[in-house]
Amino acid sequence: MLTTGHQLKAARALVGVEQADLAERSGVAVTTIRKMEWKGAETLTSGLDTIKRVQTSLEAAGVEFLNHGQPGVRLAKRTDGPRASPAHVEAQAVEARSQAASAADDAMTGMDATKQEKAERRGALTGEPAMVEKARDKGRARK
């Protein structure tokens, strides 16, 4: 449960919500949010209905309120479906890098540059440092 001004401020910062945005989402005045935060470590004295509306808005934004001995906040655990496995995330990253590499190749078509320069640019654009190093090694071998 939302209990202190510091907890409110931390919750807002955790999800990147400005005071005015939270006030609008909660249906309260921005001065109410400010006054609640000014309480600092003290217990909030706003009406229970006001506190509940602010708390509900922050929970909808992904905040979980903690009161295990002292007030705190954290991002709520996702419950909207299974999380992707590390292998799936890596496969998506590989596909994205491949698409970026193709786009970089297309953009460099007709460019007046050596293969080494093109490979370095491609690596820099796609985040493939191994490609950059490989291109540099090929360039060194030719010299």
Rank of each mutant, 00 (worst) to 15 (best):
Met1Asp: 12
Leu2Met: 05
Gly5Thr: 10
Gly5Asn: 09
Ala11Val: 01
Leu14Ala: 11
Val17Glu: 07
Asp21Gly: 04
Asp21Ala: 15
Asp21Phe: 03
Ala23Thr: 14
Glu24Gly: 09
Ser26His: 04
Ser26Glu: 08
Val28Met: 03
Val28Ala: 07
Ala29Ile: 05
Thr32Glu: 06
Thr32Asp: 07
Ile33Lys: 06
Ile33Cys: 05
Met36Tyr: 04
Glu37Pro: 09
Lys39Glu: 13
Glu42Asn: 15
Thr45Ser: 10
Asp49Gly: 13
Thr50His: 00
Ile51Tyr: 01
Ile51Ser: 01
Lys52Asn: 11
Gln55Ser: 05
Thr56Lys: 09
Glu59Arg: 01
Ala60Met: 08
Ala60Phe: 01
Ala61Thr: 02
Ala61Ile: 05
Glu64Leu: 09
Asn67Met: 09
His68Val: 11
His68Asp: 15
Gly69Asn: 08
Pro71Tyr: 00
Arg78Met: 03
Thr79Lys: 03
Pro82Phe: 08
Pro82Arg: 15
Ala84Tyr: 05
Ser85Leu: 10
Ser85Arg: 08
His88Asp: 08
Ala91Gln: 14
Ala91Pro: 02
Gln92Pro: 00
Glu95Gly: 07
Ala100Phe: 01
Ala101Thr: 15
Ala101Lys: 08
Ser102Asp: 12
Ala104Ile: 07
Asp105His: 13
Asp106Asn: 11
Ala107Trp: 09
Met108Pro: 00
Thr109Gly: 08
Gly110Ser: 11
Gly110Tyr: 05
Gly110Arg: 11
Gly110Leu: 07
Asp112Pro: 04
Lys115Cys: 12
Lys118Ala: 14
Ala119Asp: 11
Ala119Arg: 11
Ala119Leu: 12
Arg121Pro: 00
Arg121Asn: 13
Arg121Tyr: 05
Thr126Trp: 00
Pro129Phe: 03
Met131Tyr: 03
Asp137Pro: 00
Asp137Trp: 05
Arg142Gly: 04
Arg142Asn: 10
Lys143Cys: 07
Lys143Asp: 12
